[in-house]
Design a protein around this nucleic acid. Structure first.
Length: 491
RNA sequence: CGGGGUGUGGCGCAGUUGGUAGCGCGCUACGUUCGGGACGUAGAGGCCGCAAGUUCGAGUCUUGUCACCCCGACCA
């Protein structure tokens, strides 16, 4: 076992960085705050992309692409939106370089100054609504259900691989509707798509809810979110879906003629998830031996490692394994047969363990004699011998079981780490000594929320849907409250 | 932008009171190995972040500068 690995208990954030590096997911780049997503990490993103994209198509959405650059003036149209993003925008001011007259390589050509600066998109609402304006005249043009897969830039001061980088990959859905109700329904629908994806594909339990006004997306009337709990007890926002009301329609003057021949502003939504989900995936399942991947998102679901001394032995094993590989592939399972002779089997065991491959099958001469193989599952590290005759069926079952078991574990973890606090001392005590989610009363004012954030470093993660009403007193101010809201320290 | 730290082969590091650079991993070749990160032998690989200065002589001392990392303020 690799001893150069931090454990979660020793240093959680170091452990996270180690997993990212050892599993070969990503690395820091020459550009500050930007990461290189390596092939294995990108393969996970592709699995996420494919699954989500399918879900978007099934709910009637189509993909499109809008420009990376946004004219600066577009940004100032919607007051809250600018305020929210202004501090982290990359700005393009020039369009040409020239040779340094003083001989020091190239310099920005001062002659090539843009008349209007361009912003590298931190999100695309403005450019998209400026475009939708031309697409929409009548109720017959609605709804518009578009999604785009893109990169965005937010100039963050402190970055962490996958969790927060200056540039990241994401998808952003932008929809336009004739009625408020329809837009709200869309917002909810897409949040549920995210929650389904998190639970079924990522095997990650999430809480669905509404953000408090302070935590709302800049320019939204309401922000719905899914919140997950990481192993260190900190919460992570895993996806958001925004009801934008008519804010952007008004800012960009997007009106449609309704059936009664009256002009109305269009209703909007937007929703997104990013490569941050990979960070969530890592922190949800992985252990001190490295990455643990749910089968649904594992680039390699099953690895088969031959154990042999001679070439004849390898040939015998290969011959026996070929039909098995075919059977697994026929079931849609991604299999890797690693017969690379330059690496020893023990080395491979560790390699695939660190990389989180859900199922490992080892086959050696002894197994051939007994007509079985050693099957090891990554989540529990349990090993069993399974007959070669039923191996394909058993592996398929095992993958499903691992997927389910990982999810069940996160449900239990979330439940075990969700507590109630009735007093300020209790609240702080839980956060300091146990972490996790805390349900507590809040007087409903942004000022109090801000104060709590300042004093306890915890924020309202969300007000869960179907939250039970309950009379109580705000943990900070003692003012009356009608419901508990979900607090946590967060990423 | 504050506070702390680090820059030396690809990676991780050592380098004493200044004397011309070393260790581990990895890499290459050959051989022995192969059921949980093998071992031996022989190799390759470095303007010591950059720039000035002190000195007969600087990885080491001085000054400046750049970059990166960690901890805060801001955030998906």
């Amino acid at each position: 076992m690799a001893k150069d690995f931090s454990t979660r208990a020793e240093n959680y954030s170091q452990w996270y960085n180690d997993v990212v590096k050892k599993a070969d997911l990503a690395e820091n780049s020459a550009v500050r705050g930007c990461m290189v997503i390596k092939p294995y990490g990108y393969a996970i993103w592709e699995k996420m992309h494919d699954a989500l994209d399918k879900m978007f198509k099934e709910t009637g959405h189509t993909n499109a692409y809008f420009p990376l650059f946004i004219p600066k003036s577009f940004f100032s149209r919607e007051a809250h939106h600018v305020e929210g993003f202004a501090k982290e925008c990359a700005v393009i001011t020039h369009y040409r370089l020239k040779n340094d007259p003083n001989g020091g390589g190239v310099v920005v050509d001062p002659e090539a100054k843009l008349e209007e600066e361009l912003i590298v998109r931190p999100t695309s609402e403005t450019i998209i609504w400026d475009t939708y304006k031309n697409w929409i005249q009548s109720y017959r043009d609605l709804p518009i259900l578009c999604n785009q897969w893109a990169n965005v830039v937010r100039w963050e001061m402190r970055t962490r691989l996958f969790l927060r980088t200056a540039e990241f990959l994401w998808q952003e859905g932008h929809t336009a509707h004739a009625t408020r109700e329809e837009a709200i329904e869309e917002t909810r629908k897409m949040l549920n798509v995210y929650a389904d994806f998190a639970e079924k594909h990522m095997a990650m339990s999430v809480v669905r809810g509404v953000k408090s006004p302070n935590e709302r997306f800049a320019g939204a009337d309401d922000t719905y979110c899914i919140e997950a709990l990481m192993q260190d007890g900190k919460a992570l926002q895993a996806g958001t879906s925004h009801f934008l009301g008519q804010n952007f329609a008004k800012a960009f003057d997007v009106k449609f003629l309704n059936k009664e021949n009256q002009l109305e502003y269009v209703w909007a939504t937007s929703w997104g998830v990013s490569t941050r989900l990979i960070g969530a995936l890592i922190m949800t399942h992985s252990d001190d031996n490295g990455l643990v991947l749910p089968p649904a998102l594992a680039p390699i679901q099953v690895v088969i490692i031959p154990i042999y001394k001679s070439e004849e032995q390898l040939n015998q094993i290969t011959e026996k394994v070929q039909p098995l590989i075919q059977k697994l592939k026929d079931k849609g399972i991604s299999v890797k047969y690693d017969d690379d002779d330059s690496k020893r089997s023990g080395w491979k065991f560790n390699e695939y363990e660190v990389k989180g491959v859900p199922v490992r099958i080892a086959i050696g001469p002894r197994d051939l004699e007994n007509n079985h193989a050693e099957v090891c599952r990554r989540d529990t590290l349990e090993k069993t011998n399974i007959s070669l005759d039923t191996l394909d069926v058993e592996v398929e079952k095992l993958l499903a079981e691992i997927q389910q078991s990982l999810f069940d574990r996160t449900v239990k973890f979330r439940e075990d780490n969700t507590r109630k606090a009735d007093t300020w001392d209790e609240f702080v005590d839980i956060l300091d000594n146990q972490a996790g989610f805390v349900y507590a009363h809040w007087d409903g004012t942004p000022e109090t929320e801000e104060l709590i954030k300042e004093k306890a470093k915890a924020t309202i993660r969300c007000i869960p849907f179907n939250n039970p009403l309950e009379e109580g007193k705000c943990i900070l101010t003692g003012k009356p409250s009608k419901q508990r809201v979900l607090f946590a320290r967060a990423y």
